[in-house]
Write a protein that binds this DNA or RNA. Structure first.
Lengths: 136, 136
DNA sequence: GCTGGAGGTGACAGTCATTATCAACATGCT
DNA sequence: AGCATGTTGATAATGACTGTCACCTCCAGC
């Protein structure tokens, strides 16, 4: 019966959340929660592990970061806001954002052909980046 | 220094492995290891959980089943041998195998454009199958 | 058919990422 | 400043999966 119609959960700005965001901003590659937690600790910006997980989840929910599943663990990365996919180096993790309008069209059309609705998709490319090829 | 040049690890045919294979043959959908373990137990064909995991891994290594990661757990399915992708109902798990030569070409070309080599990819579609749309 | 031994099995403990708990704490509104 | 409420973090719990190791089974050779 409250008269306040606000739906936003009122996210507070805390030192911890800012620190996690800063970590993501500082790197272009996908990072795991454990990774970020350790990095923060090293830099003296100690943040509890549970809090790192919560912050990452909040960012993912807000659409500010992309989540991928790599070898059984979730990895996060700050990304552009448009829909896109990733080309990730399986050795060093270097990531390139790629767009594929053709693929988007194909997935939608294919799903419709089979009568499926509300279609989403996951598409990720893995390979060896130029640097790692040279390094052998 | 052995003079025997055999590389095959000599997979034995055991009741347990046959039971796991039979489970996969009995269903067209992706099943988790725990799922299969429970089903076998129900049917009186009790098999240790560790053994189910080992059998599934062996089948996956042999290329006889496809593996997907769904909600943090590996799911397995008996599949055709050619390279293909899946269109999975996110409600009931009904699966359709799909092929997309165009997508294969696109991924290879895109990766090469960025100088990446030895490219692999993951592509899965999720949606609501016709039956679940009606039930919805 | 019997036997030896290599491969297979399974109960259980260990690992690892992630989530729940909950008391102490910080933030932002008034 | 004061207070209600969202946040934090140490720790325990969960859940999927893997390692261990003593016992068992398949099958080749007799």
């Amino acid at each position: 019966m409250s008269s306040s119609p606000d739906v936003a959960p009122a996210q507070r700005s805390t030192r911890q959340r800012r620190a996690v965001s800063a970590q993501l901003a500082a790197s272009d590659d996908f990072r795991s929660a454990q990774d970020i937690h350790e990095a923060l600790r090293r830099e003296g910006e100690a943040v509890g592990l549970a809090t790192v997980y919560r912050a990452l989840q909040a960012l993912a929910d807000a659409g500010e970061v992309d989540v991928l599943n790599h070898a059984g663990e979730a990895v996060y990365r700050r990304c552009s806001e448009t829909h896109h996919h990733h080309l990730v180096c399986r050795q060093c993790g270097a990531t390139v954002e790629i767009e594929g309008p053709a693929v988007e069209r194909w997935t939608t059309a294919t799903a419709q052909q089979h009568g499926y609705a509300e279609v989403s998709h996951t598409l990720e490319l893995f390979g060896l980046c130029p640097a790692c090829q040279r390094a052998g």
